[in-house]
Computed example of a mutant assay.
Amino acid sequence: MHQFWKTAFFCASLMGSVATAHAAPSSPVQAPPPNGYQAFFDHLSTEPLRYAAISSHSGKRLLVGLHPSTEGHVTGELMLLDGTMRPLLTADVEGTAPDLQNGQTGACQLTATLKEDSLHLNGPCSRDQISGGLTRTMHPSQLWSQVNSFISPDMSVSAVWLTRTGWNAAITPAPTP
């Protein structure tokens, strides 16, 4: 139980900032993936390396599923759910990692590219957990925005800790009072 609360604490700031960073005030839900949220979740659930955490502050759930693509590289999916299990964000993930399926540990560098920004997770990882700093960088669209971003980058950093043991708790709806 201690591990769960520790995981939830580290993810609380991430899930609050990610949800507000990617959600318009009038419509907090991102457009569904082409094949729908359920199909996206079903695919995510089949990944051999699954990590998740629940925010103790808001009940939001962050799910990440990965598989090796080439030696030293992984690809997969990321999904953010609100406390009622409603999808808020989906994205493809890619990056570098040791051979996690065979028990290697090391540093992971993962990136999820979204429409207006990217999320970068850098930190230690193993078969049982992924942790580290999550950085958000904006994708400027106009020339002046690109110049301004170069001079003063729009970045925010959060700490995240996702675990394999957190997966079942994160995909199980909270009991209703």
Rank of each mutant, 00 (worst) to 15 (best):
G106C: 05
S69V: 06
C108E: 07
V93N: 06
G133Y: 10
A39F: 02
G59F: 00
I151A: 11
T96P: 07
H120F: 10
N122W: 04
V160D: 00
R164W: 06
P175V: 09
R127S: 10
Q146K: 15
L80G: 00
T111L: 06
S118E: 08
H120N: 13
E94R: 14
S13N: 14
A169S: 08
N102T: 04
H139I: 00
G83E: 14
A52Y: 09
S45E: 11
S118Y: 02
L78D: 02
I130G: 01
H67E: 09
D99V: 04
A24H: 15
A12P: 04
S58P: 01
L44V: 03
T75M: 11
M1N: 14
L78K: 07
V147H: 15
L78H: 00
A174R: 13
T46E: 09
A107R: 11
H2Y: 15
T113E: 15
M1P: 13
S145F: 12
P34M: 06
T163K: 04
G123E: 03
M79F: 05
S26H: 10
D117N: 10
D82Y: 06
G76A: 05
L81T: 00
R127C: 06
P28E: 09
F4R: 11
L44P: 00
P173R: 08
I151N: 11
M138P: 01
F41T: 05
G76P: 04
E71N: 13
F10Y: 10
F40E: 08
S156R: 13
L49R: 05
A53Q: 10
T46F: 06
S145V: 03
G106K: 01
L62P: 00
R136I: 01
S69Y: 12
L66N: 03
D82A: 04
V157A: 03
V157G: 02
G83R: 11
T20D: 08
